[in-house]
Amino acid sequence: MSDIPEDDKPSRRDFLYITTGTFGAVGAAAMVWPLVDQMNPDSSVKALSSIEVDISEVPEGGFLKVAWRGKPVYIRRRTAEEIIRAESEDKEDLPDPQNDADRVKKKEWLVVVGVCTHLGCIPIADRGDYDGWFCPCHGSHYDISGRIRKGPAPTNLEIPPYEFASDTVIKIG
């Protein structure tokens, strides 16, 4: 179109093209965000994000399985022997090293999300080579502290945010 060098300089028209295009792109991006964000957890889902659990009935060595955010949470009342075992295994070669003391608020109570860190199946309690949990899907073994010991899962069972509302009530979430 042009053989005159001055035409290579940006013209008013180029400026208008670029600003129009930029405004259009920003506007489109702003429009897209609500369309994407509607897929995130909604207010009714988030409202259910904390629960209170009465643990007075759990016998020593027993556990409760409660639903929190649609996932099971194991609340396990460990025996003295189990606590000693968990602590003594701190020194072993763990895939995801963590001390038992860092995984509990009271040594007697272990609270873990019952979702295998491999692909989200629910491990079965009191099973497996380490007498903790065993995931039937792809064979991950967890110990009595919920730590991964053997199998494909990369990390220990997750500890949910929780606190002791009283001696007999745990608030999860």
Binding site: M39, R69, G70
Partner: peptide, 17 residues
């Protein structure tokens, strides 16, 4: 994951989408 699920686990929002 939460964006795809519409929650913290597979549930009604997941089924609907």
């Amino acid at each position: 994951t939460q964006l795809l699920l519409g929650g913290f686990a597979v549930d009604n929002p997941t089924l609907n989408r």
